[in-house]
Amino acid sequence: MKNKLPFIISGVAILIAVGVFFVSRSGRASDLISESMKSASPVRIYAQKAKETYLADKSKRHFEHYDLDHDQKVSQDEYLAGRRRSFKRLDKNQDGVLNFDEYAASAMNRFDQADHNHDGFLNMEDFAVIDNHKGQDEKGVEP
């Protein structure tokens, strides 16, 4: 019996894991785990704070790009000036009109910069580079 005990314990652990998996897939996991436990998860808290920090930083860079006189306010003139700068940056042939190729070139350039091994695909690390380059190359401005 002593020799079978590890197999029995392993079998029970597998059954429990399979049961938890199927319960969570069926949508009844919320019945088993209280809402307070879900919202207090350290991973969930960390992810939420990281998201909030990223969005705040991105918003700050975006705002600073438009706030030309650094008075912590963006006037209509400042806003339009920022949009004009973005338009001019995208209008490669300076004809006053954006065609699709000019508009898409910015996104393709970021993709190419992020695709380190040039295989035409982005892995998780490559994908993170897109946001970094976007903030540096465009100074936080989105078309």
Rank of each mutant, 00 (worst) to 15 (best):
R61S: 02
V18W: 10
N3D: 15
H65I: 01
R85H: 13
L55D: 09
V141S: 07
D91G: 02
P6R: 14
A81T: 10
E64C: 01
I130Q: 01
A105I: 02
F121E: 04
S30Q: 12
V129M: 01
F21T: 10
L32K: 09
R84C: 03
N123T: 01
D31M: 08
N93S: 05
Q76W: 09
R89P: 01
E125W: 02
R84S: 10
N93C: 11
D115I: 01
S26W: 03
V97L: 09
E78T: 03
G140V: 05
H133P: 00
A128T: 02
T53Y: 01
L90R: 12
F7E: 12
Q136D: 11
E78K: 08
K4R: 08
D69Q: 01
Q76M: 15
I33A: 06
A105K: 06
S24L: 14
S24P: 01
D131F: 11
S106V: 06
A105F: 03
A40T: 07
S26A: 15
R89G: 04
L122H: 01
A56V: 03
P42N: 09
D126W: 00
Y103C: 04
F111V: 07
I130C: 07
F100K: 08
F121V: 11
F22L: 11
A105C: 11
E142Q: 14
D131L: 04
D91N: 05
M108C: 02
G120V: 10
S26E: 07
P6Y: 04
R85W: 00
